[in-house]
Amino acid sequence: MPPDNSASCGVSIIQFDPDGDVILVIPSEAQKRTARFQINSHSLCLASPVFRAMLGINASFKEGNALRNRNASSPPIDITLEDDEPRALAVLLRIVHHQYDWIPRTLNGNQLYQVAIVCDKYDMRGVLGLWLDQWIPLDTNCGGKIVGDQWLYIAYTFGRKALFTQLSKDLILTSTVDANGTLLAPSSTSDSAQSTSSFNHYIPSSILGTCGARLGFLVVYTDRLQRKFLHADSRP
């Protein structure tokens, strides 16, 4: 039976498990809306070590204590998750609760990116399994409307090794470094030096640092090539 969905007064309620012991509350201050997802905490703990740390039997968080103290007649406990994209979280919760008919067969770049953020935050890549093959076929074109470093983040989060290697190479070739050796994102316009933007803050700094180091080496090597071929060290 499909879950009951209802929306009223800016509140959207989805019962992923009608007998669920937890309601995830995802407020959106900007849009004055709130999503309430009734879920099974055991399923979620199996899917996410982050939720296991929060809600598991050995959890020391107040949410874990509240769960342990409830009985069969107790209402589900509310847990508020700030800053999550409810639609992306809902996709993951559908998978966790085995409601495969409710899972989109395709996701565009932005939707994938939103799923990646939630997936990364709660360390839930493992539950995606074959859905990733469905959403990101091997011949995926990484162009489109979202910028390249978002695709890099998607490839990193979802463990797409070849794609990650290819995109990180592209990033090295198209980025610049400042005087401090800090990697600067490719500019969105081709001819303005002032339009370099910062990178997506979800990308681990270790990745950007490694890209910056490799680019720094390439800049030095390029300078050496120029000196060799243009005889810059033997000015007339």
Binding site: R52, D123, R125, G126, S168, K169, D170, L218
Partner: peptide, 23 residues
């Protein structure tokens, strides 16, 4: 030089959770 540049290895950056959520 451009053809010889390699991208990063994903396995170099992958996280493995100590609490069982291995990626």
């Amino acid at each position: 030089m451009l053809t010889e540049i390699r991208g990063l290895e994903w396995t170099q950056f992958v996280r493995n959770s100590s609490i069982g959520g291995a990626t």
